[in-house]
């Protein structure tokens, strides 16, 4: 029946943004889960290697990936930028009311927005600092090197220096930032299942919730391990000196590769450096 023509039939042509509203929202959800989320798992798992595995090896594997810069831009920085810009826009259009309606789910909702912003700030500073070498006017001058000029392993030491810089504020920043990322992702995974229509019933949502909480806790444990290790790792004077010299742009005194290994390294680092 013509009677049921859409009542909006006469409405003017909506904007491109409005036309693609659904697509943008779903891409926002997807970008958070797959590229960003999957990277987050890898990243936190890799960091955890500091405590229990071969961190240097893992890090070098990543850094030796072919066409890394393209993978990074397409798989990480673009999705993060997209996710962040839309996320902030959406957040600005909301009015959290957890004080008035203090239900657990409502706190979860508010926290999702708060952690989204925190995570974005953290990722920006973290990436800018450790990946692109920004120093933020000298306030966060923490050089990060994977290895010395002769392949001396510096992954853990560099991480530790970065984390221990301006103690405890950087540490606090890391704890908050990393946990914001973990919460934001685990909770996002839970809500995405509702939004996409995977978990229909309250029971299904509860069960998926258990899974997401488990996943979040696992990532939290990984993060805690890495942060603990990096925060307590005793950086050897030689490592610190080497990084200082590299930072100053001075070449280190030439020495045979095996000489470097003779540096009195802490036990773990020695294990890491072993072939």
């Amino acid at each position: 029946m013509s009677a049921d023509a859409s009542p909006n039939a006469q409405a003017p042509q909506p904007s491109l943004l409005a036309q693609n509203h659904f697509l943008l929202r779903r891409l926002h959800s997807l970008s958070g889960i797959v590229p960003i989320g999957v990277f987050l798992i890898f990243h936190l798992f890799t960091n955890f290697q500091m405590l229990v595995g071969n961190f240097q090896h893992e890090v070098e594997f990543i850094h030796n990936m072919p066409a890394l810069i393209y993978i990074e831009i397409l798989g990480l920085w673009l999705p993060i930028g997209f996710h962040a810009v839309l996320g902030i826009a959406y957040t600005l259009g909301s009015n959290p009311n957890s004080i008035q309606y203090p239900y657990m789910d409502n706190w979860r909702y508010t926290l999702q927005r708060v952690t989204g912003i925190l995570a974005f700030l953290f990722i920006f500073v973290h990436g800018a600092k450790l990946r692109w070498g920004f120093t933020f006017g000298g306030y966060l001058d923490t050089p990060f090197y994977l290895h010395g000029p002769h392949g001396e392993p510096l992954a853990t030491a560099s991480t530790a220096i970065a984390l221990q810089h301006a103690f405890p504020w950087v540490l606090v920043g890391y704890v908050v930032g990393v946990y914001a990322c973990v919460y934001h992702w685990a909770n996002g995974l839970w809500t995405a299942a509702i939004s996409w229509g995977l978990t229909l019933s309250v029971a299904a949502q509860r069960r998926w919730g258990v899974f997401c909480v488990g996943l979040g806790l696992a990532l939290a444990v990984f993060s805690a391990g890495a942060i603990y290790k990096a925060a307590t790792y005793p950086v050897a004077d030689q490592q610190r000196e080497m990084i200082r010299l590299m930072e100053a742009g001075r070449t280190l005194p030439a020495a045979p590769h095996d000489k470097v290994l003779e540096l009195p390294l802490p036990a773990e680092e020695a294990h890491e450096a072993a072939p």
């Binding site: 859409s6 909006n8 909506p14 943004l17 409005a18 509203h21 659904f22 929202r25 779903r26 959406y90 909301s94 959290p96 009311n97 309606y101 239900y103 789910d105 409502n106 979860r108 909702y109 508010t110 999702q112 809500t191 509702i194 939004s195």
Partner: peptide
Amino acid sequence: DAMMGPGGITDCGNAQN
């Protein structure tokens, strides 16, 4: 269709209030 435009289903934030 009506539910997928601006202000539609995707604007839900799952606060579940």
